[in-house]
Write a protein that binds this DNA or RNA. Sequence first.
DNA 1: CCATTTTGTGGGAGCGTTCCCATGAAAATA
DNA 2: TATTTTCATGGGAACGCTCCCACAAAATGG
Lengths: 340, 340
Amino acid sequence: MKRHQVTIIDIAQKLNISKSTVSRALTGHPSVRSDTRQAVMELAQQMDYQRNMLAINLSSSQSKTIGIIVPEFVTSFFPIVIMGAQEIAAQVGYSVLISQSNETYETEVANAKVMLANRVDGVLISMTRETKNFEHFDVFKRKGIPLVFFNRVCHDIETPKVVVDDYEGAFKATEHLILLGKERIAHLAGPPSLYISRKRLEGYKDALRKHKRPILDDLIISYDLTLEKVKIYVKYLLDLPTPPDALFAVNDPTAIEAIKVIKEQGLSIPEQIAVVGFSNDYGSALIEPGLTTMAQPTREIGQVAAQLLLDQIHTDSSVWKPITRVLKTELIIRGSSQRN
Amino acid sequence: MKRHQVTIIDIAQKLNISKSTVSRALTGHPSVRSDTRQAVMELAQQMDYQRNMLAINLSSSQSKTIGIIVPEFVTSFFPIVIMGAQEIAAQVGYSVLISQSNETYETEVANAKVMLANRVDGVLISMTRETKNFEHFDVFKRKGIPLVFFNRVCHDIETPKVVVDDYEGAFKATEHLILLGKERIAHLAGPPSLYISRKRLEGYKDALRKHKRPILDDLIISYDLTLEKVKIYVKYLLDLPTPPDALFAVNDPTAIEAIKVIKEQGLSIPEQIAVVGFSNDYGSALIEPGLTTMAQPTREIGQVAAQLLLDQIHTDSSVWKPITRVLKTELIIRGSSQRN
DNA sequence: CCATTTTGTGGGAGCGTTCCCATGAAAATA
DNA sequence: TATTTTCATGGGAACGCTCCCACAAAATGG
């Protein structure tokens, strides 16, 4: 027994006016007499009428919703980005539809379909680490739905992106270790499929080059970001005939995991081995010793991405201006690299 | 220049059949010839047709979406709950509309309106710490939209709830400290407006009573959960003529903040003062010393809440069965209470 | 004082589906 | 062969809203 929804027609009938007028009154259309508007407003309130977005959306064929697809929710990074985006969206009356791809390509494709089906007005995406095929993004372009990539961006597709300066961040992080006198700096890198992995690796290498240090391939390990594997790789590094005296990890979760392993092995941080991460996640300040890391403006990433997306939505040009916003990173020095 | 959406009518025209048939073919209705279905499917694929949920939603007057309103996104707790809920929802084809109330009553009310306007089929809510008026929830009841509270529940309204056994958890946490030989156990409690605060306080007191310890009012501080204040309160406690030798904090963020302050003050944990939290958040294992805490099954809370909500949605009785699911907590002992 | 503009309102199409009812053809039954 | 049943399909209302067009009444202008 479905309870009847209160519609503008109900209001219209009670007031003995047409639904058009009610609609106009409710949406604040100027050409409606003020006493009519008054009456409508009051009755609406009284009947607790709620405008039916389902109908409005269909009628206007836009959902006033932006979709966000993120790979995971486990680290604090993505939730904070979402927070930032939601903030901006809410300011202009947009809702946010969130889905996580669980780092799986198939799920990402499915999520994209859901976004399409829900007729979101635009989508914010950070890709799966295993996404190598970008066809599921093309359809957005074909349908004229704006897309903005952030963090894990796709360079094969012309679209706005929001990233931090991964190259520079990695460069500075590595340089920090070099200036501390570290000689053998290992790098636990992300999968080469991700642009950010490649950029960070590049920054790392260039810092070594600038300071005339050799680039030692056996100190560079590229892994798939499944944290369980960190233990294996770190142990491998520590067991090397001449183990590294510093480790630059591709992100904070990795670095934190590494610190745990190193502590288990009874080595002293930062003396025997210094550790630097990337992101300044929530846990980085908590772990002992505190993790030196390149902070990224996480919330701001979400805000900027959402703003960029909204801009695209509101300029009705069907071409995407492939603006790339590069945000700055900042070195946060804590005990994992330098005793104070 | 709006690009025309591909609709079932387009498909129907190309195939020279009626839109009804296309609709049936697409939705898997049995009475449609298999070659017709085949043709429709293929053409749909080829034209990259996406069913328009906006229209489907209007037509079926349900959105296949559940709303989630949470107070914040900063701690790892709510994102993980959402993850759990999203998982369950996705399994049965439901989307999730998320909004955060930022711990503000007004925003919560606004969020509720948004949920209503979007015609969500049900809502999961964890209240703001300042919510004392529940009228904005009544409207859901009036409209027959299922509501499930979790974590921060509302007892003035008959609806399903998912909570952990806060009383028992607090009792055990406190007892743990007592059995460790602690004599003056302070409690940094949450605001009394929250049921969980009251329950945890109660558990704390009853544990003291059971073990014939005095309940010392100056060791019980109730605060509004804004972390900046923790420093003030902890310092106050430590500056007492006879300071406490243990602290039971209402949640992990509070406990972690307290540990930081205590360490700053140069006191040894757990010898001079032991600390116990509640929740087993991500940071609890990272901080030094590790935080002893009552773990709550965070993801499970989301899963159970979503399941309860879906059950309500699918049983079309208009009355809510006010089932309360109480999940178990578990004491995780780490260095903040006991050296190993 | 009549012609023109403005103002407030009603009527109705359209948004893209679903779903009920009708219809005609084929198949099954008498 | 005549009648009923099944099957596949078409037609059209409904979902609740917006928005364009039409129209009468009121306001303005020459």
